Simulated assay, not measured.
Amino acid sequence: MIGLGTLINVGGILLGGLLGALFGRAINVRIQETLMKATGLCVIFLGIGGAIEKMMTVTETGLTSGGTMMIIGSFAIGSLIGEIWNIEKHLEHFGEWLKKKTKNDRDTKFVDGFVNTSLTVCIGAMAVVGAIQDGIAGD
């Protein structure tokens, strides 16, 4: 079913957010930091693995590469657009607004957590490429 992967992703995000809201304060800060580091490392690994998977192939004669200029251009253009639009500042302002609306004024890490989560979950490599792959190929 086309879109199933995206629906599972949304469900996982909602479930994780709900569990975090309900039980987040019960988990030791040290354990929370360790889990965040482990999750970050996994996201980096998946992003690099996904990029290299299409860029490097093993042939009978050895390792061949391709698409290098595409990734360099994508990073350059994406960075330029992000800086021109100042996306980070807008996400931080939205995070401050959410912080006030949810009455989390005393939470000093709310905005940082919101920005990091938004970047990882909503516009991260797996979210974008996964949604495109799900829509085009249905897997």
Rank of each mutant, 00 (worst) to 15 (best):
R25E: 05
G49H: 08
T57D: 06
L91K: 02
I72Y: 04
V111G: 05
E60F: 12
M1F: 06
S118N: 07
E60P: 10
T6H: 11
A51C: 10
S74M: 10
I77A: 13
T59Y: 04
S118P: 06
L119H: 02
G138Y: 09
V58K: 09
T59I: 07
M69V: 10
I8C: 06
I44L: 15
G138L: 09
L63E: 04
R25N: 06
K37H: 06
E88Y: 11
G138F: 05
I72L: 15
T120Q: 13
K103S: 11
E88H: 14
L7P: 01
V111C: 04
G24A: 06
T120I: 13
G78P: 07
T59N: 06
V115E: 06
D105W: 02
N86M: 04
T39C: 14
M55S: 14
A76H: 00
G49Q: 05
E60W: 08
K109P: 00
T117N: 05
G67R: 10
G62E: 00
K101R: 11
L15E: 00
L4N: 04
N9E: 00
K109T: 11
G11L: 14
E92Q: 13
S118L: 07
G11W: 00
G12D: 01
L119D: 05
A125G: 11
L35M: 14
S79Y: 12
K89F: 10
L4K: 14
T6V: 15
G73N: 09
N104A: 13
I136T: 10
I72Q: 01
A131M: 15
K54F: 03
D139L: 14
R30N: 10
I71V: 15
R106V: 09
G5N: 12
N104G: 03
E96M: 11
L91A: 07
G3S: 03
G5E: 05
D107Q: 11
K37L: 07
K89C: 00
G82E: 03
L14Y: 03
G12V: 04
I132A: 13
S74C: 11
I81H: 03
K37M: 05
K99N: 00
I136V: 15
V128I: 15
M70H: 13
I132D: 06
I52A: 15
